[in-house]
Nucleic acid binder design. Structure first.
Length: 493
RNA sequence: GCCCCUGUCGUCUAGUCAGGUUAGGACAUCGCCCUUUCAAGGCGGUAGCAUGGGUUCAAGUCCCGUCGGGGGCGCCA
């Protein structure tokens, strides 16, 4: 079995396309088949090398490895349509010789008039077939003399055309509604509907999974296969990915391009996991699955036919679960760029062993709060910065809070240093003074973290305490510094 | 306008092909438990077969209509 993903390098890859790529990949791998990457760059106006490169990088980032493609070649190359022009021309001429295609000299303006007319009369538009009967010899002469022409395929007119869709079952059309369509444009480049057929045939593609916007292209393509005497592949049409309002997902709904999801701190495996479940449900109850598990369980015939709304709630949950499955070290390595941006560290691997251990401990404490990797610096910040929550400080002005603050200050103001052991001693002292439980721990939390909630207090104290003698790019704030800051804030007001 | 696809909790879906279930799960939401706090975790609740007919002892499931959503009708892909 051979499947392909054939994007156009006319922009950054969209999550909808990622889903298409994924389903092709899963279906291929499920059956031990090949996954092929082909670049459809016949739209010379909009295609660029930069987009092609970013496309390849994106698919690589996702972990969807391809067996054949423009960068690695393969038995059935080249894998860029712009490098296959001769092939398209050759076969177009073959069709003309067999009387299945013809030169058309109608100008875009003339066609526009035809379309307008059809619209006015309320009739469905279809190319008139005006040039269909120009004798081949005469047509060839006009072309040789430099007249602009396209090549059109004589679309067989058939009342009850049917094909069997991998996802939707039988779909039928009245081909009388289809006009003769262009296969070679006047600039010599092939049209989409023609190029895919040539390529998919010569690349021995067996199954094609694509968006439902291609359903009505399918009869044209199948008829081309038949005209050449080739066996058409299986077709499966996926529903669209929708925005929260139910309209097709687009930029106005927010992020749609894959690079943005990387920047937002989503894990590629989480994104794939989520996308796989948009329109398909794994059997059994498990939903958090690796790419290999998805391959094992995937079944193209079970994919749903209706459009699916892209839901960040669920994506976030899936991402969170995948992050929890990562080790502390992996989280630090994969979150490196976000930590660099916030100047927390230069890179996990540049750290000394003791510092690495410290960071792992810190991550372990805040791991369950991570939804995306961008949360990593924010959550870790509690160790480096003293961010104060106004509401929380109100508590320190109340009697019980004041008591704890004063007692802490009295105990440590001379020493100017607080160790973890000191804290445990302090807790005993406080208890002797009659302060305990919530009355004690909650103010302590506010004093040392500035917040009324967060990491478990004993873990927090232990981590801060053990960071004292390590060399960091940025030093965690010591307990005494934190106490001082709390005092200052209270005194100021 | 014409053609095609599609409709189960707010969201993603299982169930529809071979009619019989208290219509199941997950996310979100709400509540409880755990926790000196938050989160995580555990337990529980709210919530759905678009609509009207028909077939049948029995319809989410089969048939017809209506309504809604989407796509296509290019020398774009």
């Amino acid at each position: 079995m051979r499947l392909r993903f054939a994007p156009s390098p006319t922009g950054y890859i969209h999550v909808g396309n990622v889903r298409t790529a994924l389903f092709n990949f899963l279906h291929a791998k499920k059956h031990n088949g090949e996954f092929i990457l082909r670049i459809e760059d016949t739209d010379i106006e909009r295609s660029t090398k930069e987009y092609e490169e970013s496309l390849l990088n994106s698919i690589k980032w996702l972990g969807l490895s391809w067996n054949e493609g423009p960068d690695i070649g393969g038995e059935y190359g080249p894998y860029r349509q712009s490098e296959r022009i001769d092939l398209y021309k050759k076969h177009a001429h073959q069709l003309m010789e067999e009387g299945k295609a013809y030169y058309c000299f109608c100008t875009p303006e003339e066609l526009e008039i035809e379309r307008e007319k059809a619209k006015k009369e309320g009739k469905p538009y279809k190319y008139s077939g005006k040039c269909r009967d120009i004798p081949m010899e005469e047509a060839q002469k006009r072309v040789d003399s430099g007249e602009k022409a396209v090549i059109r395929f004589k679309m067989p007119q058939e009342k009850d055309f049917k094909y069997n869709d991998l996802i939707r079952g039988e779909i039928s059309f009245d081909l009388n509604l289809f006009g003769d369509f262009v296969i070679i444009r006047s600039n010599g480049l092939p049209s989409y509907n023609y190029a895919v057929v040539i390529d998919d045939h010569f690349m021995k593609i067996t199954d094609i999974i694509r968006g439902e916007d291609h359903i009505s292209n399918t009869p044209k393509q199948i008829k081309l296969y038949e005209a050449f005497g080739w066996t058409p592949p299986n077709f499966g049409h996926l529903s669209m990915v929708l925005g929260p309002d139910g309209s097709p997902l687009s930029k106005r709904h927010g992020a749609t391009s894959l690079v943005q999801f990387d920047e937002m701190g989503y894990l590629p495996e989480a994104l794939l996991n989520y996308l796989a479940m948009l329109g398909w449900a794994p059997p059994e109850d498990r939903e958090i699955l690796s790419l290999n598990e998805l391959i094992k369980l995937f079944d193209i015939t079970k994919v749903s036919k209706s459009g699916a709304i892209f839901d960040y709630n669920k994506l976030n949950w899936v991402n969170k679960k995948h992050i929890q499955n990562l080790s502390e070290e992996e989280i630090l390595i994969r979150g490196e760029k976000f930590l660099k941006d916030k100047k927390i560290m230069d890179g996990f691997t540049t750290l000394g062993d003791k510092e690495k251990e410290w960071f792992k401990k810190a991550v372990k404490a805040i791991k369950t709060n991570l939804t995306t990797l961008t949360d990593l610096p924010d959550e870790l910040n509690i160790f480096f910065e003293y961010k104060t929550d106004k509401e929380a400080f109100k508590e320190l002005r109340e009697e019980s809070g004041k008591k704890v603050l004063n007692l802490l200050y009295k105990t440590f103001k001379e020493k100017k240093e607080i160790s973890v052991k000191d804290i445990f001693d302090f807790i005993k002292t406080a208890k002797n003074e009659g302060i305990k439980g919530k009355e004690l721990f909650h103010p302590m939390r506010v004093i040392f973290t500035g917040q009324s909630s967060g990491v478990e207090l004993d873990k927090f104290l232990e981590i801060i305490g053990s960071g004292d003698n390590l060399s960091f790019k940025r030093k965690p704030l010591s307990l005494f510094e934190r106490l001082e800051k709390a005092i200052n804030i209270i005194n100021k007001q």
